[in-house]
Write a protein that binds this DNA or RNA. Structure first.
Lengths: 223, 223
DNA sequence: TTTTGTGAACTAGTTCACAGCT
DNA sequence: AGCTGTGAACTAGTTCACAAAA
């Protein structure tokens, strides 16, 4: 009665829904840490500024996790969300580009928390290879990429390389069997079907803030 | 005939539209650098994987920048977009939080390019105050925030502080007159009306990639 | 009674298709 | 002939509102 739709693989889930699932998990972690046993979509929505109907719809898509008249059991829903998000096993990540940003991302504590492991960094610059990030992530020569990805069973590549190098790195990563990429370099990249690319474009983010400043518009927004 | 709607301040422009304007500007920079004098929405769309009708609609909202039968003059449209995005003058930015991520953001070359200037960093940790980032951005004590923001006429604050401190920093920043914030800490923050907050949530980005990996779904996406 | 799960209604965003300008 | 600017059509995403379950 609970797992029916859990593996529903009909239509594609939107980016927006996927991001919200991750947000829900974070909310549940907070509730769990606070000792809360169960929560209704209404309470959850009020507490974290979300919409109750949307929470229910998002969750219901993956299974009937709630109990009518009660709400959702926090621990149970957490477990379900972790499975849905693929966080029930360690997700192995490599960072490509050992510049300032790459090093900061490799050591970012938020990544290590929920099941992610930063396994290695890669750089093509001679002087960086062999060194380590502060938390001890090794910087490996880019030529070793394919081999290390296979050996270490890397799931996700994080790209923190200059725009000019980004497409080539994507090609190498895809050829090495990487199917998910988080890209921090500016500009559009091409990936073949079957590969998921997510872009975080810092310049676009700042420029759109500047735009709203210039217009005198306002109010919060979910990036 | 060209500026009519330029200051149209009726309805709110969507986040999506604002981000696309920034993308268009980047495309035009590339074309300009390549010596291209004019471009049609069709060509622009094909070259950068966009939609021609959308480009026209986005631009037309702010004025009649195009020439029928010809397209858009690259230099001229660049100039218009820079004005629309508020990049016709230097935008002054402060980074709050001088950890790994904050330091990387303060030195991020992408920010310095298009009219942004990273004026200062702030941190509450005693040992960091007085030091500088690699490119020379000074780290100032958090207690000085208000004064420095006023003196240096800071436009945008970038938040790279732990989640637990984020809301308090927002409150201080808003009280100091900051009207635009780019937040890298996880979790939802409250801002009063009239203040624009944009969130970049790295954990959510990675988790949504993990989600698509777990489902075996695919294909590109714009973050 | 309370709250879920969900069709229906609504709102936002995108794409089409073409009149009209150059 | 070629391309913009834009209403109309369409698609995606959100919220409402209520029947059914505990």
């Amino acid at each position: 009665m609970t797992r029916d739709k859990a593996s529903k693989s009909g239509d594609q889930v939107s980016e927006l829904t996927a991001s919200r699932l991750s947000v829900y998990l974070r909310c549940l972690n907070a509730l769990d840490a606070a000792g809360v046993k169960s929560v209704s979509s209404k309470t959850l929505a009020e507490q974290f500024h979300l919409n109750a109907a949307q929470i229910r719809k998002d969750l219901a898509y993956f299974g009937e996790f709630g109990v009518r008249g009660v709400g959702y059991y926090v621990r149970e829903l957490k477990r379900h969300l972790r499975v849905i998000l693929g966080l029930d096993r360690t997700v192995r990540v490599a960072v490509v580009g050992a510049g300032n940003l790459g090093l900061a991302l490799a050591d970012y504590p938020g990544f290590r928390q929920e099941g992610f492991e930063i396994v290695a960094m890669f750089d093509s610059e001679r002087g960086k290879v062999g060194r380590k990030s502060r938390t001890g992530v090794r910087i490996i020569e880019m030529g070793e990429f394919r081999k290390v990805v296979k050996r270490e069973r890397i799931d996700i590549a994080v790209l923190a390389v200059p725009a000019s190098a980004a497409q080539e790195v994507v090609n190498v990563a895809v050829a090495a069997g990487i199917r998910a990429l988080l890209n921090f370099s500016p500009g559009a990249l091409k990936v073949p079907p079957g590969v998921k690319l997510k872009n975080v474009d810092l310049t676009v983010s700042l420029e759109s803030l500047s735009f709203f400043l210039a217009r005198g518009e306002a109010d919060e927004d979910e990036g």
